[in-house]
Amino acid sequence: MEERYAEVARTFGAALERLAGAYERDPEARRDLLQEIHVALWRSLARYDGRCSLRTWVYRVAHNTAISRVVRPRSSAPSLVAIDDDLDSLTEAGDREDGIDRRRALDRLYELIQRLRPLDRQVMLLYPEEEDTASIAEITGLSVANVSTKVHRIKRILVRQFHEATHHGE
């Protein structure tokens, strides 16, 4: 189990750090969440029986841990939005700047992610990690068609919001 954990930490360490950063922007809270995810992973690996890929397992544990800790439905639910319903509110053209750099673009991406409802947030986080639609569906439990729709919308948001920023930062 310890070898498997070491492998997981080596392979997914960076992605888990990005994931924690997307749930918690405060550095101290982010470190706490990341540690909590690692502890949950270490504990969970004893139960890993290969019924899904290790990748799916790791992302499920990480996202479920983050959701349990960070998303408190009572207070946060009303202010969160869905990718499907609020595309325009997420990407108001007037809110864009032409000359923003990479750092600003990343900050904006994090802001965007934190405004999303939990499952949309998870899809939004898995997509830039180069997860394909089927993998995202397996991790989140959404249908492949649903994930495809969400990914399509995410692409539109990202292109509208960050196209200029990413080219500017080159």
Partner: peptide, 15 residues
């Protein structure tokens, strides 16, 4: 849910 079982549940089901 115990940490050991978090990998068995999809994000949708867990949430």
């Amino acid at each position: 849910a115990e940490p050991a079982t978090l990998g068995l549940t999809s994000c949708f089901e867990h949430y």
